[in-house]
């Protein structure tokens, strides 16, 4: 077994040579124009980091995400609109890069699911109350018949003796 303390020499050496970018957005990528930079940030939030799970490129420290961020800014500086920039990237990487899945035949069921589920639940709740109401009508106590009423009166009448 190697004791941890032995590691530190080469550990430090390793630390000094690593050059992975650690934070998501770095100052050297940022654009000088704050309006353009803000637009770039908004677009970045819509795009998926291809090698992560459900992280946007704005949130990711992967190299690929950094490349995409730089690409977004290049397109914006070149004068593209937000939509053109998104289209440019979707053309190259496919719909897979969009965190917000676009409406197309493959996603009809996905986007339809909230409406379908809500309607389904609504119908279920409606049917529940409907049935409950019917049950209440059929199960509600019947009025006393004349014979029952006479018998009840007899029972309630104070006894003579």
């Amino acid at each position: 077994m190697i004791r941890p303390a032995r590691h530190f020499l080469w550990l430090f050496a390793a630390l000094l040579v690593t050059t992975q970018p650690a934070l998501a957005v770095l100052p050297d990528e940022m654009l000088a124009n704050p309006v353009l930079e803000q637009r770039a940030r908004e677009i970045s939030k819509e795009l998926r980091c291809l090698v992560c799970q459900n992280q946007s490129i704005d949130d990711s420290d992967a190299d690929l995400a950094r490349d995409l961020r730089v690409l977004v800014r290049e397109r914006l500086v070149a004068g593209d609109s937000d939509q053109q920039t998104l289209d440019y990237i979707v053309d190259r990487y496919g719909d897979y890069v969009l965190l917000n899945p676009p409406l197309k035949p493959e996603t009809y069921i996905l986007w339809g699911s909230p409406f379908f589920l809500l309607i389904f639940a609504g119908v279920g709740v409606f049917a529940f109350y409907r049935r409950k109401k019917n049950d209440a009508v059929t199960n509600s106590p019947q009025a006393l018949s004349d014979a029952e009423r006479r018998r009840l009166d007899d029972l309630l009448r104070p006894s003579q003796d």
Partner: peptide, 29 residues
Amino acid sequence: VAAAIILTGTVYPLIVRWIGDSIVTVGPP
């Protein structure tokens, strides 16, 4: 219903990959 929506969104990429060739991302938005 909320649970059903979350479940749909979570497994949807898998279903699309199964029945179709394409891949989709279902992200936070």
